[in-house]
Amino acid sequence: MHVRSLLYFFGEALKNVIRHGWMSIASIAVVSITLLILGSFMVINYNVSLLAEDIKGQVQIVVYIEDETDEKLRSELQRALVAHPELEEVRFVSKEDAMERLKRQMGDRAFLLEGYEEKDKNPLRDSYELRTRVPEDIPRVARELMNLPGAGYVDYGSGVVEPLFQFTGVIRWIGFAFMVGLALTAVFLISHTIRLTVFIRRKEIMIMKYVGATDWFIRWPFIFEGLILGLVGAVVPLVIIFYSYQAATQWMQGNIYFISLIPVDDIMQELVRVLAFLGVALGVLGSAISVRRFLKV
């Protein structure tokens, strides 16, 4: 296609958007509102998932080593842990380190631990703190580790971890289902709105056919029009979400600092991709498909 025709088609599309002002506004409003609902839900969903991942990531396995375990067994245990394919992180915490940490955690009341610091009197044990590659594997891996030579008591928060994983799993599925549902609704609503804008102009298409316009000559302005409506319809919710999310993250930082939200830029990258794609694709496809129905004259 020549640049000149491209400009002409785009110009025609722009003129049509303005000529049918109310219909354009209505279409853009439908696109914007559906994408705003979808986008808002995506923002919530991403943050909930992040939170769930965060919580899951904190779960770890602790393998305690009894004081009387000899060096040979200890090094055998270390080798086995380091070589374990499902473990991502293996960290040795000596009983002295553990005491230090406990003192820090107790803060003002650390004096209670006085007298327990000397090596012989330290009641804590050496341990390995482990993270698995997949948090959900923790209960199974932990049970396997119990059988390793040199391993004492193995703690992974059993009884708490399982329901937690179940809960985060359910949340993820609900979020996913909602997102798919909303996306389908958006597809349905937007394509129907675009089709309506074409439908009310079917007479125009017929006239074009009678004066000898080729199908593509008729189609291009409609396609560009769909593109414009879809793009503007996507930009509106993106701007709204950007500013409100920015405000939300700032407010959270000041008030509920222990929950960290996904940074604005990261989440916008994803949203721009999804919403702009949906808006443009549905606008263009909706137009192209509905024009085709009226081209058979």
């Binding site: 056919k209 009678y210 004066v211 000898g212 316009a213 080729t214 199908d215 000559f217």
Partner: peptide, 12 residues
């Protein structure tokens, strides 16, 4: 696809 060119020769 030749129909448009036919119609350009016919004024309706």
């Amino acid at each position: 696809r030749e129909i448009p060119y036919l119609r350009r020769n016919i004024g309706m």
